[in-house]
Computed example of a mutant assay.
Amino acid sequence: MRALVFASVLLAGSPLAAEDDFDQRVIEAILNNPEVVLLAIQRLEAERELAATEVERRQIAEVADQLFGDDPEIRLVEFFDYRCGYCAQSASQMQTLPHELTKGVRLFEFPILGQESTDIAKVSIAVRNVEGDNAYQRFHYAVFDAAGRVGDTASAIRLAASLGYDADAIAGEAQSNDVAAEILRNQRLAATLGIRGTPTFVGRDQIYDGLLNPEELVEILDTEKDES
């Protein structure tokens, strides 16, 4: 009996008992002040968001030359797929914005929705290579305005011809190694930035996933312009 009492006294005064007592007091404090848990979670989320933002900035900085080139007017890059419904909405919204803003957006073909997407992307790049940037932009919006009627190489070339462009030259260019290499470069860029879906927008220091409405685009472009 004396041994049992002695052992109990030793245990009560042991570091293990003190640790158990501390844990119990912590639990009681949390139960009595549950808002502390919410504050801790909010702080953790804020720290994670800050860390993710820093990672994005480093990723963008690594490939900034490929994204924006040497043109300071380019402030936002859009990775898109011609068969993506949200990209179609994005194109429609872009056409409502002033040219002063949209000229700061650079388009990157990122065909991820099958062979048809790749075929249209190749014709699109070929239009730019053969006819120039203004023709490319016109063709780009015309594909989306066609609302799904452009779904393969042949229909894309017919659309280009209807816009007055050299269909034969575009058809040949669409099958060139240069066009294929550009799509591959875009895919590698997307992988470097962790982009897996469309549309995705990349600013000078931030990545924006998914569809943005016109108000968000104006705000982002104005912010990017101020910071450039």
Rank of each mutant, 00 (worst) to 15 (best):
R2Q: 15
S8K: 12
L10D: 06
L11R: 13
D20Y: 06
D20I: 13
F22T: 13
E28K: 13
E28M: 05
A29Q: 04
A29M: 06
P34V: 08
E35S: 14
V37W: 00
A40R: 08
Q42F: 02
A46N: 08
E47D: 09
T53C: 00
V55E: 12
R57M: 06
Q66A: 14
L67Q: 12
L76M: 04
L76V: 09
V77P: 00
D81S: 06
Y82W: 13
R83N: 15
C84D: 12
G85A: 04
G85L: 03
Q89M: 10
Q89N: 07
A91I: 06
A91T: 07
T96V: 06
T96L: 09
H99W: 06
E100C: 01
G104Q: 03
R106G: 05
L107S: 07
P111T: 14
I112K: 07
I112T: 09
E116V: 02
T118V: 15
T118K: 10
D119S: 14
I120H: 11
A121F: 00
S124E: 02
R128S: 11
N134C: 00
G148P: 04
R149Q: 14
V150S: 00
G151H: 15
A156W: 01
G164L: 07
A169G: 11
Q175L: 12
Q175V: 09
A180V: 14
L184I: 08
Q187S: 13
A191I: 02
L193N: 06
P199L: 07
F201H: 14
I207N: 04
P214L: 12
L221S: 08
D222A: 03
E224C: 02
K225N: 04
E227I: 10
